[in-house]
Write a protein that binds this DNA or RNA. Sequence first.
DNA 1: AGGGGAATTTGAACCGATACAAGCAATGAG
DNA 2: CTCATTGCTTGTATCGGTTCAAATTCCCCT
Lengths: 357, 357
Amino acid sequence: MDVKRMIKLSDVAKAAGVSQGTASNVFNRPQIVRPEVREKVEAVARELGYSGPDPKGRLLRAGKVNAIGVATAEPLSYFFDDPFARVLMSGISEALDVHGAGISLVSSANDEKLAWNIQSAIVDGFILLCIEGGNRLVELTRDRKLPFVALELDTDDETIAQIGIDDFDGARRIAEHVVDLGHREIAVLSLQLVDDRTGRVTPDQIDTAIYSATRDRLRGYFASLKAAGIDTDAVPVYETENDRKSVNAALEALFDGSATHPTALIAMSDRAALFAIEWLRGRGVAVPEDVSVVGFDGVPEGAFSDPPLTTVTQPIAAMGRLAVQMILEGPSMARRQMLDVELTIRASTAPPRVLGA
Amino acid sequence: MDVKRMIKLSDVAKAAGVSQGTASNVFNRPQIVRPEVREKVEAVARELGYSGPDPKGRLLRAGKVNAIGVATAEPLSYFFDDPFARVLMSGISEALDVHGAGISLVSSANDEKLAWNIQSAIVDGFILLCIEGGNRLVELTRDRKLPFVALELDTDDETIAQIGIDDFDGARRIAEHVVDLGHREIAVLSLQLVDDRTGRVTPDQIDTAIYSATRDRLRGYFASLKAAGIDTDAVPVYETENDRKSVNAALEALFDGSATHPTALIAMSDRAALFAIEWLRGRGVAVPEDVSVVGFDGVPEGAFSDPPLTTVTQPIAAMGRLAVQMILEGPSMARRQMLDVELTIRASTAPPRVLGA
DNA sequence: AGGGGAATTTGAACCGATACAAGCAATGAG
DNA sequence: CTCATTGCTTGTATCGGTTCAAATTCCCCT
């Protein structure tokens, strides 16, 4: 036998000789019950070792949990290890603290468990961190019929509440920075336009992208390049999977093949940019003297890389705060929020070396 | 009006012309219900927009939440901003991932809200992060009558399940390192022995400490100093509040007053040690050439400070994993677990400058 | 003493599910 | 043809509370 059955409110009520309703009031609205009755009930409760109503019961009746779930298709430790996630969670925490609400972390790298965890999470709403498997995440969450907002979700779907950044504008501005420095030979390390493809992209493939952020960033880059009189059809664009392997493959194609090479590399993520810097320095190519490199996202590591990375910084904490606000304030807010990004110019960019100098 | 009342299992059952029990089975043990019935129910559910049983209801019946709460008397963002907390949470996450359980973050800097949050958290157990206000936290949690384990709780209370480190041994070993280098003029930057007191401590105050970790570390230091033939009664020990202000005050007393000063500073926390290094360098005192400094805890920043900090490293992630295990495996485990620490020797310690050299 | 209004208390209905004993129908064995 | 089995299905109790209309009690006033 376990410790004998947990005693509950009705036990206390019976033992104190009052109705369950009154006992409930003793704990929830003590003012409305006569002091002597209250004390009697409290005494009995203490004697029986009863310490307040079980939240599980209250919950069912109340409906409100006072906690929101943050879900992602990664292991739980992602929330504490990943720099992006940490800043985001910090923003979320801040906003939630103001409301006195809690956070439930919902996650699993394994799809089956993820589904179950989302289905059974006890929360009032979800914030989805769609770094990976975003569509699946949205699909699963939609079934819960709770308010939710998606972050970093790469789609145009207007039926989903989401917070994003102005990809086009961010891309446009960083490309502008690059051409303003005088670069004309530019290559792009893109993220994926469609699944499972890497390598050089032809211009007409851009409009068939299924990932809208990739597409918009590309368009942003091209807008600035065109404005500078560069023939964008001739600009090499390589799709990568945002990992070292595919980035290196793209770099090999760009640098090993021909006599000339780009003087500036525009990467669509800081991660890719940092891989690129590493690869270049490994080859004795100086950054930014020989080749300038820019990223996108503004992860904290970019500030400490060597050289520090010029990039487009997302307002990550602000996104977190806004997400909480959208959940808690209900559907009164616009379904799609687009935040402005900031251009962060550090030391990975410089004017191109003058020929023959 | 809101969206019309959420439809529930009994609605589906009624609409499908089956009993609620059968409807429940369709979702929980589909194998045992005849395929045609199952399909009928599923069809009705889809039609009515019912997507699976509400976890709130299930919860009450099942009793198990499949999530554990991590509580601390700090704002929520503490979990993501503080380096110690992050490593700990990472360890907790790892262990929880294996069990497929979730995490609820329970916290609030405000005592009243903290109490409420702990009382109403929907969890199977708690891990208490007792950095601050540990006793209050324990008191609050005990009332929930759920399994819990306290981390960094500074007490000898044997009735509380807790995970700690061997403070005495860690202290002994780092002090040994210091005397082995040849230091004889040593000062200690202590944490608090009792509340609300800072400044120099007399030897006899040590045994009246209410904080056992502080006391044990001090005893550990003294054990090594005594073994090296140093008169511990003459060793200056300053209580600080682990903040810049009280650390600086102690340093002023140590370095500004007299002609001689210690050649080694033993701080009881990395935080205090890092403040000390900053203060010393601000005065043009070279670390470790003029003064060696050691810390305690092994926070990640210590590895990147200038110079990198010699310290006692706590097995933080291991503590997190163990905590989860203790909660999930029930009371079968020993109530008090003491983990070994590791001596991390970096560049903030060196032999003392030879006089007149 | 009687009446009216305020202050408490009661009892039962819910909240949304799961579990389990008991019922029923179909199949197989004897 | 009857009795067991097997395989679903049903009905109802239970999980642990909160809520609210109705009933009761209390207090004060005329």
